[in-house]
Amino acid sequence: MLTNIKYYSCPQSINEAVRELTKGRGRYSILAGGTSSLIHTHPRCLGFVSLKDLGLGYIRQAKGMLRIGAMTRIQEILEDKRAGRLAGGLLYKACSCLGSTLNRSLITAGGNMTQIFRWSDFPVALLVLDTKITVAGPSRMTVPLIDLLKKHPKTKLKYNQIITEIGIRDPGKGYRSEFIKFSRTNFDLAILSIAVLACVNQGRCTDIRIAYGAVQPLCFRAYGLEELIKGQRISEELIQKAGEESTRLISCSRDLRVSPEYQRSLLKTLTLRALKKVLLNPK
């Protein structure tokens, strides 16, 4: 039993949920899947406002974007064909290594975007896609994921703001992708993860996006590395150079689980592996 929890409410509309959270003045937490909030309950948290009845469990295609409701479970994304096909299966790969089957049935897309940890997998894949996050609160707004991740979403979002939708634009044909999670077991926490999305036209890289997870406290895009490859003719030498440069351009923050040397070596190895898969392999 969570002894400090004295209040629970299950609002029927987003406005009502925002009102409840406003009433709590930061002492009520949002309850989505519960996999994180029930384990890491803040001592100051006195109650939960559940999002389960807000109708946010959906995956639909609208206005050229795949729209995933915040309460959609990761297992539901895995089982959805449109999400599975997106960007050559990039989202599918990231979701399939996220937690165990038992937890994927609880973890929600929105929850995973708010409770971001160093080792989070899902946002790493979303970073290389053109992802927009819809936030409801006293006012409604849609922000690019890259802006939301400039600070930790838990500090960036106010206590009465709720992520309601994740919108992902399909990069279209010609793009190839790869997602690699390095961990001790399939559903263990990532020691390092990388997502790459690239377009190669007539042997030249016309567009590339690279994101890393578990290297720093928050996942991030490696713009410097992208610039190094963009517009260049694809060759083994270019990929090798990018692998070498990754350890120079990307600073790894201290991680208790791995030594800095191991982390840098892993960074180079996974960068090479992902770039080779995306840039050299036709499929």
Partner: peptide, 23 residues
């Protein structure tokens, strides 16, 4: 993490230790 408390919740397998009863 261990799955010893697994139940089917609306036909979805879940760890019941991660579900708030009220929810």
């Amino acid at each position: 993490e261990c799955g010893a408390c697994a139940v089917l919740l609306d036909n979805r397998p879940v760890n019941s230790c991660l579900v708030l009863a009220a929810d």
